Measured scan of single mutants.
Amino acid sequence: GLTEEQKQEIREAFDLFDTDGSGTIDAKELKVAMRALGFEPKKEEIKKMISEIDKDGSGTIDFEEFLTMMTA
């Protein structure tokens, strides 16, 4: 499992990506986040990433899903 410290770091990354503070990361926010990390993702790639992570089919990534992605 994760230490509380690791969870906190992932939470901070999540909050950075969640620019509108909605508690979820949408495609637009993910794209901005990827760019910040030096990637140039295409729209299809973003969609694919979200569909792989987005277990509940909401079209957005919540913290639990993000946590799973970061620790996979």
Rank of each mutant, 00 (worst) to 15 (best):
G1W: 12
G1P: 08
G1F: 10
G1D: 08
G1R: 11
L2R: 04
T3K: 04
E4T: 10
E4A: 09
E4C: 12
E4Y: 07
E5V: 11
E5S: 09
E5G: 08
E5N: 09
E5H: 12
Q6L: 13
Q6I: 08
Q6W: 13
Q6K: 13
K7I: 14
K7N: 04
K7P: 01
Q8E: 05
Q8G: 06
Q8Y: 09
Q8R: 13
E9Y: 09
E9S: 13
E9F: 10
E9T: 14
I10A: 08
I10D: 00
R11A: 03
R11E: 01
R11D: 01
R11T: 01
E12N: 12
E12K: 14
E12I: 12
E12M: 14
E12A: 12
A13E: 03
A13D: 02
A13I: 15
A13Q: 10
F14M: 01
F14L: 01
F14R: 00
F14T: 00
D15Q: 07
L16N: 09
L16F: 13
L16W: 14
L16S: 09
F17R: 02
F17C: 10
F17D: 01
F17T: 03
F17V: 15
F17K: 00
D18N: 03
D18V: 03
T19N: 06
T19P: 05
T19R: 12
T19Q: 08
D20H: 05
D20Q: 06
D20M: 04
D20S: 03
G21K: 12
G21A: 06
G21I: 01
G21E: 05
S22K: 08
S22Q: 02
S22R: 06
G23R: 04
G23A: 02
G23E: 02
T24V: 07
T24H: 08
T24S: 11
I25N: 00
I25A: 00
I25P: 00
I25S: 00
I25L: 14
I25C: 03
D26S: 12
D26I: 02
A27E: 11
A27S: 09
K28V: 08
K28G: 08
K28M: 12
E29L: 13
L30A: 03
L30G: 01
L30I: 08
L30W: 03
L30F: 05
L30E: 00
K31G: 11
K31L: 15
V32L: 14
V32P: 11
V32Y: 13
A33S: 01
A33N: 01
A33L: 15
A33Y: 03
A33C: 08
M34A: 02
M34E: 02
M34R: 00
M34C: 10
R35C: 14
R35H: 09
A36D: 05
A36C: 14
A36Q: 12
A36M: 13
L37K: 03
L37I: 06
L37F: 04
L37G: 04
G38T: 01
G38L: 01
G38S: 02
F39A: 02
F39K: 04
E40M: 13
E40C: 14
P41F: 15
P41Y: 15
K42T: 15
K42N: 15
K42F: 09
K42P: 08
K42V: 11
K42C: 14
K43Y: 15
K43T: 15
K43L: 15
E44C: 13
E44N: 08
E44I: 06
E44H: 10
E45V: 14
E45I: 13
I46M: 06
I46R: 01
I46P: 01
I46A: 03
K47H: 10
K47C: 14
K47N: 11
K47R: 10
K47L: 14
K47P: 04
K48C: 15
K48Y: 02
M49E: 02
M49W: 05
M49S: 04
I50C: 06
I50F: 13
I50P: 01
I50T: 03
S51I: 05
S51P: 03
S51W: 05
S51D: 13
E52Q: 12
I53T: 04
I53Q: 04
I53F: 15
D54H: 09
K55M: 09
K55P: 06
K55D: 05
K55Y: 05
D56T: 10
D56E: 07
D56H: 10
D56G: 06
G57I: 07
G57F: 12
G57A: 07
G57W: 09
S58E: 06
S58K: 12
S58G: 06
G59R: 08
G59E: 05
G59M: 08
T60H: 07
T60L: 09
T60Y: 08
T60N: 06
I61K: 00
I61T: 00
I61L: 08
I61Y: 03
I61W: 03
D62M: 05
D62E: 07
F63D: 00
F63P: 01
F63Y: 05
E64D: 11
E65Y: 08
E65I: 07
E65G: 10
F66I: 03
F66P: 00
L67H: 01
L67P: 00
T68F: 10
M69W: 15
M70N: 01
M70E: 02
M70K: 01
M70I: 13
M70A: 04
T71N: 05
